[in-house]
Amino acid sequence: MVAGVLSLTRNGLRDWILQRISAVVLAVYAIYLIGFLLMHPYLHYLQWLALFHHTWFRIFSLLTLVSIVMHAWIGIWTVFTDYVHPYWLRGILQTLLVLSLLALLFWGIEILWGIY
């Protein structure tokens, strides 16, 4: 048994499933947004704003944001543990990663729910 204190769930199977589920959410969101942009070739601000006024779309966006955080946490944690060997540097990088992802999440929530 080998764990990683700063891995997302410290469980390989759970990390693996979360990474796959979040990938699907990211893909669906990206496809939806691209579709939306294609359907509004002359998009202007009010239409864009209207999209974000739907509660379901805000929740969808929030889910996507959470998915980005999980996906990146698991993926970048893996890259660090593959390539960064001095344990102190690895620790610093992992901490910075977690903090910036959390900052991104809070900032995103503030933006999404700050839309009038």
């Binding site: 048994m1 080998v2 764990a3 990683g4 469980n11 390989g12 693996w16 893996t78």
Partner: peptide, 11 residues
């Protein structure tokens, strides 16, 4: 159970 950590299999 002995293999379900983030390294053993999931690397």
């Amino acid at each position: 159970r002995n293999l379900d950590d983030p390294y053993s299999v999931f690397r």
